[in-house]
Protein backbone atom coordinates (compact mmCIF):
# COMPACT_ATOMS: atom_id res chain seq x y z
CA UNK A 1 0.00 0.00 0.00
CA UNK A 2 2.77 2.41 1.00
CA UNK A 3 4.68 2.17 -2.36
CA UNK A 4 1.43 3.04 -4.16
CA UNK A 5 0.90 6.08 -1.91
CA UNK A 6 4.46 7.24 -2.46
CA UNK A 7 4.10 6.79 -6.19
CA UNK A 8 0.87 8.78 -6.14
CA UNK A 9 2.55 11.50 -4.13
CA UNK A 10 5.34 11.79 -6.70
CA UNK A 11 2.83 11.75 -9.53
CA UNK A 12 0.61 14.40 -7.95
CA UNK A 13 3.50 16.74 -7.27
CA UNK A 14 4.82 16.32 -10.83
CA UNK A 15 1.38 17.05 -12.25
CA UNK A 16 1.16 20.15 -10.06
CA UNK A 17 4.43 21.39 -11.55
CA UNK A 18 3.21 20.70 -15.08
CA UNK A 19 -0.09 22.43 -14.36
CA UNK A 20 1.73 25.53 -13.15
CA UNK A 21 3.86 25.50 -16.30
CA UNK A 22 0.78 25.22 -18.47
CA UNK A 23 -0.79 28.16 -16.65
CA UNK A 24 2.22 30.24 -17.62
CA UNK A 25 1.67 29.29 -21.25
CA UNK A 26 -2.04 29.97 -20.97
CA UNK A 27 -1.35 33.43 -19.53
CA UNK A 28 0.80 34.25 -22.56
CA UNK A 29 -1.96 32.99 -24.86
CA UNK A 30 -4.60 35.10 -23.11
CA UNK A 31 -2.39 38.18 -23.19
CA UNK A 32 -1.95 37.67 -26.91
CA UNK A 33 -5.73 37.49 -27.22
CA UNK A 34 -6.09 40.78 -25.35
CA UNK A 35 -3.44 42.33 -27.57
CA UNK A 36 -5.36 41.24 -30.67
CA UNK A 37 -8.60 42.59 -29.18
CA UNK A 38 -7.04 45.98 -28.41
CA UNK A 39 -5.55 46.10 -31.89
CA UNK A 40 -8.94 45.50 -33.51
CA UNK A 41 -10.58 48.13 -31.28
CA UNK A 42 -7.86 50.53 -32.35
CA UNK A 43 -8.50 49.87 -36.01
CA UNK A 44 -12.25 50.32 -35.59
CA UNK A 45 -11.73 53.66 -33.86
CA UNK A 46 -9.12 54.83 -36.36
CA UNK A 47 -10.96 53.89 -39.54
CA UNK A 48 -14.58 53.15 -38.64
CA UNK A 49 -15.29 55.99 -36.20
CA UNK A 50 -18.02 53.91 -34.63
CA UNK A 51 -19.24 54.34 -31.04
CA UNK A 52 -17.63 51.96 -28.55
CA UNK A 53 -20.72 49.84 -27.69
CA UNK A 54 -21.19 49.01 -31.38
CA UNK A 55 -17.50 48.23 -31.79
CA UNK A 56 -17.57 45.91 -28.78
CA UNK A 57 -20.65 44.04 -29.99
CA UNK A 58 -19.31 43.62 -33.50
CA UNK A 59 -15.88 42.44 -32.35
CA UNK A 60 -17.55 40.15 -29.83
CA UNK A 61 -18.86 38.13 -32.77
CA UNK A 62 -15.33 37.68 -34.15
CA UNK A 63 -13.28 37.06 -31.03
CA UNK A 64 -12.79 33.76 -29.24
CA UNK A 65 -13.79 33.07 -25.64
CA UNK A 66 -13.57 34.52 -23.02
CA UNK A 67 -13.04 37.82 -24.85
CA UNK A 68 -16.22 37.31 -26.90
CA UNK A 69 -18.28 37.18 -23.73
CA UNK A 70 -16.43 40.16 -22.32
CA UNK A 71 -17.08 42.32 -25.38
CA UNK A 72 -20.72 41.23 -25.67
CA UNK A 73 -21.42 41.93 -22.01
CA UNK A 74 -19.65 45.28 -22.23
CA UNK A 75 -21.53 46.40 -25.34
CA UNK A 76 -24.85 45.28 -23.88
CA UNK A 77 -24.37 47.04 -20.55
CA UNK A 78 -23.13 50.25 -22.15
CA UNK A 79 -26.22 50.40 -24.33
CA UNK A 80 -28.45 50.17 -21.28
CA UNK A 81 -27.28 53.64 -20.14
CA UNK A 82 -27.55 52.72 -16.49
CA UNK A 83 -26.40 54.78 -13.57
CA UNK A 84 -22.70 53.86 -13.81
CA UNK A 85 -19.89 55.35 -15.82
CA UNK A 86 -17.89 53.75 -18.60
CA UNK A 87 -14.76 52.95 -16.59
CA UNK A 88 -16.79 51.36 -13.80
CA UNK A 89 -18.66 49.14 -16.26
CA UNK A 90 -15.41 48.26 -18.02
CA UNK A 91 -13.71 47.38 -14.75
CA UNK A 92 -16.63 45.23 -13.54
CA UNK A 93 -16.91 43.29 -16.78
CA UNK A 94 -13.13 42.77 -16.84
CA UNK A 95 -13.28 41.08 -13.44
CA UNK A 96 -16.45 39.13 -14.25
CA UNK A 97 -15.47 37.79 -17.68
CA UNK A 98 -11.68 37.72 -17.69
CA UNK A 99 -10.85 37.37 -14.00
CA UNK A 100 -11.35 33.63 -13.82
CA UNK A 101 -8.74 32.61 -16.41
CA UNK A 102 -4.96 32.51 -16.25
CA UNK A 103 -4.48 36.27 -16.30
CA UNK A 104 -2.87 37.78 -13.23
CA UNK A 105 -4.22 40.78 -11.34
CA UNK A 106 -1.56 43.01 -12.90
CA UNK A 107 -2.80 42.02 -16.39
CA UNK A 108 -6.38 42.85 -15.44
CA UNK A 109 -5.31 46.16 -13.84
CA UNK A 110 -3.48 47.16 -16.99
CA UNK A 111 -6.61 46.45 -19.07
CA UNK A 112 -8.79 48.40 -16.63
CA UNK A 113 -6.41 51.32 -16.79
CA UNK A 114 -6.86 51.41 -20.55
CA UNK A 115 -10.65 51.24 -20.07
CA UNK A 116 -10.54 54.23 -17.76
CA UNK A 117 -9.42 56.44 -20.63
CA UNK A 118 -11.46 54.95 -23.46
CA UNK A 119 -14.38 56.96 -24.78
CA UNK A 120 -12.90 60.07 -23.24
CA UNK A 121 -11.98 63.11 -25.32
CA UNK A 122 -10.96 62.99 -28.95
CA UNK A 123 -9.89 60.26 -31.35
CA UNK A 124 -6.17 60.93 -30.93
CA UNK A 125 -6.48 60.37 -27.18
CA UNK A 126 -8.23 57.05 -27.80
CA UNK A 127 -5.55 55.90 -30.21
CA UNK A 128 -2.78 57.05 -27.88
CA UNK A 129 -4.34 55.16 -24.96
CA UNK A 130 -4.64 52.00 -27.02
CA UNK A 131 -1.10 52.35 -28.36
CA UNK A 132 0.22 52.60 -24.83
CA UNK A 133 -1.69 49.49 -23.80
CA UNK A 134 -0.48 47.62 -26.88
CA UNK A 135 3.13 48.57 -26.16
CA UNK A 136 2.87 47.46 -22.53
CA UNK A 137 1.18 44.19 -23.43
CA UNK A 138 3.64 43.44 -26.19
CA UNK A 139 6.51 44.03 -23.76
CA UNK A 140 4.92 41.76 -21.14
CA UNK A 141 4.31 39.01 -23.71
CA UNK A 142 7.90 39.23 -24.91
CA UNK A 143 9.28 39.01 -21.37
CA UNK A 144 7.02 36.11 -20.46
CA UNK A 145 7.81 34.26 -23.68
CA UNK A 146 11.54 34.67 -23.06
CA UNK A 147 11.17 33.47 -19.49
CA UNK A 148 8.77 30.67 -20.34
CA UNK A 149 11.20 27.84 -21.31
CA UNK A 150 13.27 28.40 -18.19
CA UNK A 151 10.30 28.87 -15.88
CA UNK A 152 8.36 25.90 -17.23
CA UNK A 153 11.41 23.68 -16.85
CA UNK A 154 11.87 24.91 -13.26
CA UNK A 155 8.18 24.26 -12.53
CA UNK A 156 8.25 20.75 -13.93
CA UNK A 157 11.56 19.91 -12.22
CA UNK A 158 10.44 21.38 -8.91
CA UNK A 159 7.22 19.44 -9.16
CA UNK A 160 8.99 16.16 -9.74
CA UNK A 161 11.70 16.86 -7.17
CA UNK A 162 9.15 18.03 -4.63
CA UNK A 163 7.23 14.79 -5.08
CA UNK A 164 10.37 12.71 -4.60
CA UNK A 165 11.35 14.79 -1.57
CA UNK A 166 7.93 14.28 -0.02
CA UNK A 167 8.11 10.57 -0.78
CA UNK A 168 11.48 10.34 0.92
CA UNK A 169 10.15 12.22 3.94
CA UNK A 170 7.12 9.96 4.20
CA UNK A 171 9.20 6.83 3.69
Amino acid sequence: MRPVLLLLCCLFSTLLGMLYASRLKSRIRELKGLERMAMLIRQEIAYGRQPLPDIFERLGRRMEQPRADFLHALGRELKEHGDTGFSEIFSRQTDACLGTGSLRQEDLDSLKEMGAYLGYLDRDTQLHTLDMYLRDTEKRIRELSEQYPEKSRVCRTLGAMGGIFLAVLLF
Binding site: I45, Q50, P51, L52, H81, F86, L118, G119, D122
Partner: peptide, 13 residues
Protein backbone atom coordinates in the same frame (compact mmCIF):
# COMPACT_ATOMS: atom_id res chain seq x y z
CA UNK B 1 -23.28 63.86 -23.47
CA UNK B 2 -21.90 60.44 -22.49
CA UNK B 3 -25.21 58.78 -23.34
CA UNK B 4 -25.86 60.82 -26.46
CA UNK B 5 -22.43 59.89 -27.82
CA UNK B 6 -22.60 56.31 -26.50
CA UNK B 7 -19.50 57.04 -24.41
CA UNK B 8 -17.68 57.84 -27.65
CA UNK B 9 -17.29 61.57 -28.15
CA UNK B 10 -14.43 60.86 -30.56
CA UNK B 11 -16.89 59.24 -32.99
CA UNK B 12 -18.85 62.48 -33.29
CA UNK B 13 -16.02 64.99 -33.67
Amino acid sequence: LEYVSSYSMYAYE
